[in-house]
Design a protein around this nucleic acid. Structure first.
Lengths: 117, 117
DNA sequence: TAGAGTGTGTAGTATATAGTATACGCTCAG
DNA sequence: CTGAGCGTATACTATATACTACACACTCTA
């Protein structure tokens, strides 16, 4: 029952069906960890790896780092830094938006991106 | 050179000038930690306390918990949870807004709060 | 001048985090 | 029938986090 481990295993196994370079051993070697550790992570035998390791893993598997961090119960440190720099502003923003449907948040993102501010 | 410790010490000492209930010992007693620990925290002798302890301290001192958490290099876990639930959405939003001036973020907050969504 | 209260020094602890190192048994191609 | 590659079991480790417990020296007051 490890959301993170299950996800990694499924993605990696799927890639592996096509290319043998996605074995536990080879992925582990590329991202710089021990194969036994990756194996344990996938089976939920240990907690999820550190942020850096998760990001390297996400890159290797071609997945979204933010999603994988979320599955690991973490949030990217660059987002944390942005919040910490203006805590009142961002805390307010997030607490207002957390109860809104996706489309509302998306609309805000688009307005910010496209609009003249 | 501990932003968190210095802040706590200054706020507490200021309150203490008026009321003696803001001594290290009494504050520590109210929030449920050892006075020696609070003393060390204030002088940056140890790292900042846990989130729970910071929140209790903020309440006792009448300060904003989000600001105090930020000074401690942390972000409130309810915000983290909101981001983790929709990582792509919120990661996008924050990365777009982090380079905007305060007024732009504020405008978004107000629009979300007041507008019909 | 006793005693209540103050800040702080020292020593120790439990738990979590994030892994490494090595070896084992299995499979499958040549 | 071997050896290259596979996933995994076992044992260990270094560092950080978040404190507690107790004692000490000082001050201020009744």
């Amino acid at each position: 029952m490890s959301a993170f481990g299950d996800f990694v295993r499924e993605v990696r196994e799927a890639l592996r069906r096509g290319e043998p370079r996605y074995s536990v051993r080879q992925v582990a070697a590329r991202i710089g960890i021990q194969p036994s550790y990756l194996s344990k992570v996938e089976r939920g035998d240990v907690g999820p790896p550190s942020e850096n390791t998760i990001v390297r893993l996400a890159e290797d598997l071609g997945e979204d780092p933010d999603v994988m961090l979320a599955l690991a119960g973490k949030v990217s440190s660059d987002l944390l830094e942005a919040i910490r720099k203006r805590p009142r502003l961002f805390a307010d923003l997030i607490r207002h938006l957390r109860d809104m449907p996706d489309r509302a948040v998306l609309r805000v993102v688009r307005e910010v991106r496209d609009g003249e501010w």
